[in-house]
Design a protein around this nucleic acid. Structure first.
Length: 206
DNA sequence: GAAACGATTATCT
DNA sequence: GATAATCGTTTCA
């Protein structure tokens, strides 16, 4: 497929070797590109959440939990995908941040479709009249649209089949922050970031 | 081995 | 806004 994404340079690992509360807003506007089952799909990140480390009680790697089989890649190299099963049903995509040994990550909560939208719609099995921004709205929905599964847990994000690349920068004035969603601890930490007013943001898009 | 709990979503009212 | 669906991961006995 000729979509102009063939030569898009991946973001280097150094970008991710910073605190997740820095990486999370910096990822807004970046592209996620997958080549799965023979189809290229791509979306622009418009919503993220930071999980900042062992002191973060809402994190899968909170200090009271420690390292387990599920969260192991959070303890490893930055710039790697952490993919986990949510509610036994959905896959959720994170990017590991900070340095090896310090468990932190950024959850990707929403994308707006950029390329391969027909493939994404087929994977989602959406009704034909569903608007485009609904295709990648929500962490479980975007992984399904992009074809991401647990097979990509631990995958480096600078090579196929799953790449994150820089694209349009989002002006600071267009980035909004607020409390994270769907958690029961540390609910007052403003670690959710989104592109203000973007239709693909999952909730409270103001 | 058993039980509780979700970093959610779809489908109601 | 409220709730059911649904099952992997973790924790506890």
């Amino acid at each position: 497929m000729k979509d102009g994404l063939e030569e898009r340079a991946p973001i280097g690992a150094r970008f991710f070797a910073r605190p997740s509360e820095i990486v999370a807003p910096a990822l807004l506007g970046a592209l996620i590109i997958t080549e799965i089952d023979g189809f290229r799909t791509a979306g622009r990140i418009v919503e993220t959440e930071a999980y900042v480390g062992p002191s973060d009680e809402a994190s899968h790697a909170a200090g009271r939990i420690g390292q387990t089989a599920r969260n192991a890649v959070m303890f490893g190299e930055p710039g790697v995908a952490y993919v986990y099963r949510s509610y036994g049903i959905h896959w959720c995509l994170n990017v590991v941040t900070n340095e090896r040994g310090f468990p932190a990550a950024v959850l990707i909560r929403a994308i707006e479709p950029v390329s391969g939208i027909e493939t994404m719609r087929r994977r989602r099995a959406l009704p034909p009249d569903a608007p485009d921004p609904a295709v990648g709205r929500g962490p479980g929905n975007l992984t399904r649209a992009l074809g991401i599964t647990g097979a990509l847990d631990g995958h480096r994000l600078d090579q196929p089949p799953l790449i994150i690349a820089r694209d349009s920068a989002i002006p600071q004035s267009a980035i909004a922050a607020g409390p994270r969603i769907g958690i029961s601890r540390a609910t007052d930490w403003p670690l959710r970031f989104w592109v203000r007013g973007n239709a693909a943001v999952s909730r409270n898009r103001s």
